[in-house]
Measured scan of single mutants.
Amino acid sequence: LRTVEMKKGPTDSLGISIAGGVGSPLGDVPIFIAMMHPTGVAAQTQKLRVGDRIVTICGTSTEGMTHTQAVNLLKNASGSIEMQV
C-alpha cells in the first residue's frame, strides 16, 4: 500500500474516473482508478496510476462501498485528501 496526499480546492477537480464497488456493472469488485485526466489534481501528484485500487479515501475504507458512495466521497472532499492505494 502507498499513501498519496493531494490538495484540492473547492472548485478543483481530482481528474479521475473510478470503477467498481458493490453492485457495479463489473460485479462486486474493489474500487479502482479507471481513467485520469492529465491536468487533474491526481495526475499532478505523479503518484497515482490507472488501475490503482483505492483502499481508503480520507481514512474511510472503500470495502463494501457502492460506486455512488465512493464518487460522492471523492466529489465532496476538499482541502487535504489522503488516499491509500
Rank of each mutant, 00 (worst) to 15 (best):
L1A: 06
R2F: 11
R2Y: 11
R2H: 11
T3C: 07
T3E: 04
T3K: 12
T3I: 10
E5N: 15
E5I: 15
E5F: 15
E5Q: 15
E5C: 15
M6A: 02
M6E: 00
M6P: 00
K7C: 13
K7V: 14
K7W: 15
K7Y: 15
K8M: 15
K8Y: 08
K8D: 00
K8Q: 07
K8G: 07
G9F: 04
G9Q: 08
P10S: 09
P10W: 05
P10D: 12
T11G: 15
T11H: 14
D12L: 06
D12V: 06
D12K: 09
S13N: 15
S13R: 14
S13Y: 13
S13E: 15
L14T: 04
L14Y: 09
L14I: 12
L14Q: 02
G15L: 01
G15E: 00
G15I: 05
I16W: 00
I16G: 01
S17V: 15
S17F: 11
I18P: 02
I18N: 00
I18A: 01
A19Q: 13
A19E: 13
A19K: 09
G20C: 05
G20F: 04
G21A: 01
V22Q: 09
G23D: 11
G23H: 05
G23L: 06
G23Y: 00
G23Q: 05
G23C: 03
S24R: 03
S24G: 06
P25I: 10
P25T: 10
P25C: 10
P25D: 13
P25K: 10
P25Q: 08
L26S: 10
L26F: 11
L26M: 13
G27W: 03
G27T: 04
G27C: 04
G27H: 00
G27Q: 03
D28L: 02
D28I: 03
D28R: 05
D28S: 06
V29E: 08
P30C: 07
P30R: 02
I31Y: 01
I31N: 00
F32K: 10
F32C: 09
F32L: 05
I33V: 09
I33L: 06
I33P: 05
I33S: 04
A34T: 12
A34R: 11
M35N: 15
M35V: 10
M36R: 02
H37W: 06
H37A: 12
P38A: 07
T39M: 13
G40P: 02
G40V: 02
G40N: 00
V41A: 10
V41G: 03
V41M: 11
A43L: 03
A43G: 06
Q44W: 05
Q44D: 07
Q44K: 15
Q46V: 00
K47Y: 10
L48F: 07
L48W: 02
L48C: 08
R49S: 14
R49G: 10
V50G: 02
V50K: 07
G51A: 03
G51C: 04
D52A: 04
D52P: 00
R53D: 10
R53I: 15
R53A: 11
R53C: 10
I54R: 02
I54C: 02
I54L: 10
I54A: 02
V55Q: 09
V55L: 13
V55A: 12
T56R: 14
T56A: 12
I57F: 09
I57G: 04
I57P: 05
C58R: 09
C58Q: 14
C58T: 05
C58N: 15
C58L: 07
C58V: 03
G59K: 07
G59F: 15
G59S: 05
G59R: 05
G59I: 05
T60M: 13
T60L: 12
T60S: 11
S61W: 03
S61M: 03
S61E: 08
T62K: 01
E63A: 12
E63L: 08
E63R: 11
G64F: 07
G64V: 02
G64L: 05
G64T: 07
G64K: 10
M65K: 02
M65Q: 03
M65I: 05
M65N: 05
T66H: 10
T66D: 08
T66C: 03
H67E: 13
H67R: 14
T68D: 13
T68M: 14
Q69D: 14
Q69S: 08
Q69W: 03
A70K: 01
A70T: 01
V71T: 14
V71Q: 15
V71P: 05
V71G: 10
N72E: 14
N72K: 13
N72D: 14
N72F: 07
L73F: 12
L73V: 10
L73E: 06
L74D: 00
L74G: 02
K75A: 13
A77Q: 11
A77W: 07
A77H: 12
A77E: 08
A77G: 08
A77R: 11
A77D: 06
S78A: 12
G79R: 06
G79Y: 04
G79K: 07
S80H: 13
S80K: 14
S80D: 14
S80M: 12
I81H: 06
I81C: 08
E82Q: 14
M83S: 02
M83I: 14
Q84K: 11
V85D: 02
V85N: 02
